[in-house]
Write a protein that binds this DNA or RNA. Structure first.
Lengths: 238, 238
DNA sequence: ATTACTATTTCCCGAGTAA
DNA sequence: TTTACTCGGGAAATAGTAA
């Protein structure tokens, strides 16, 4: 299946070849090879593009030179601007789900000074001792959770106190219900599934939002494009 | 004439709508309106894109949600990268032509301390007193000369010494014959045509390159993309 | 060698319409 | 309402070939 027109391919090929500051001498069969089409199609498309003012043919003696017109370059430029607006804008990723009660161990772990101090310093707020568990609702949210776990950029190191070892975790800053400063925390040795996410915040979220089990909440993470490109488009490629 | 496929348009439309982090509920007629095509075509293209793995349809109860797959987003990303490489790379503009003798007034003007000192300071070299005249050969070179005259970014101010006034000029840095530091100088009140360009340099070009009238030379100007965008694509648009 | 015409096949689009 | 089928008209692609 061809996603891209021969006409568009040809304009792009000419632009790549620099045909907007200089006229190029290119045979229809050379063009055809580059576009992966027949000589006849290349010829036809050159004629069409010229008739519509996207390119100019300049006949010098026996050879024909080709160059893009400003209209032709503008056309590509417009497409570029559209794609740029897609790929360069920050991306908001939303996880939505329902509150549920865990085993209360969030309180225990966050209270441990080794974790508490790391969060305070690296995440940037003094955490309320406890995590809010969210059961994700949609396939989208679950996929986004997996993506965010990869992207999470704040490592919380594990430690050992001689008796036992405590695993590490990763955090990423987020907004709870679109407004409250918070962070997602992905703990290394979780016993929750991939459809659950844990939130920490500088406030008691259940209190502030009067939350009961089953209430719907959402968490929003804003990613810079560069992060997205490196992850969604490469590591995540199926 | 359609430069852009419906398939490509649809992928772009979905990407613009954010269908890569969330699944969207969009009817085929809504899509058709946005693409400027029929409901039937929108439906057919959705089916094709799904069969080829560019999009996913997720059926939730009665409604169908649509989202881009990574393959679909990659496809757009690749196109974006290609266009980016075209529009973000520095552009080399070449003027070529033949040396000819002017009226020798270049020597007179460059020697005037008011001009000489400005050039030394703003252009960045101590100019050899004189200009090399080049008669441009091709249509491309003449068009590029007009473009460069607009873009030239180093103003040389005119002045008056009480007896007469001396006009201003504009310079832009360049490489003579692709290697020698030089600058093009466009004087305000020139008596040469648009097919002539004057070069100044810190050396005596005729001497260094053993040039005689009629010898072929070229001058290369490297433009940043931003300059190009503002000029070729807007001011110059036909 | 080159470009581009004609003829044939293939593909695309959209009206009509069923489910 | 929705999606997606069939089918006729037309555009696009290419083989053959002229110039």
């Amino acid at each position: 299946m061809n996603l891209i027109n021969l006409k568009e391919k040809l304009l792009i090929f000419l632009a790549q070849s620099g045909a907007y500051t200089k006229s190029l001498n290119m045979s229809t069969s050379t063009i055809a090879q580059h576009l992966g089409t027949s000589q006849q199609s290349a010829s036809r498309i050159l004629i069409q593009l010229e008739q519509n003012g996207y390119i100019e043919k300049i006949i010098v003696g026996k050879t024909t030179l080709i160059r893009l017109t400003n209209k032709g370059l503008d056309e590509l430029k417009n497409l570029y601007i559209v794609l740029k607006s897609i790929f360069e804008k920050p991306v908001e990723i939303i996880l939505e789900g329902r509150v549920f009660s865990g085993l209360g161990e969030g309180f225990y772990y966050i209270s441990l000074p080794q974790y508490f101090e790391q969060i305070k310093e690296k995440v940037g707020f003094t955490p309320y001792p406890g995590t809010l568990n969210i059961q994700l609702l949609s396939k989208d949210s679950i996929e986004n959770r997996m993506l965010l776990e990869k992207i999470a950029d704040i490592p919380i190191d594990g430690f050992s106190n001689g008796q036992r070892t405590y695993g590490g975790a990763k955090c990423i800053r987020a907004l709870f219900n679109g407004e409250q400063e918070a962070a997602l925390i992905f703990v290394e040795r979780t016993h929750y599934g991939r459809d659950v996410v844990e939130v920490i915040a500088p406030v008691y979220l259940r209190g502030k939002y009067n939350l009961r089990d089953g209430d719907k909440v959402f968490v929003k993470v804003t990613l810079k494009t560069s992060t997205l490109n490196n992850n969604i488009l490469t590591a995540e490629a199926k």
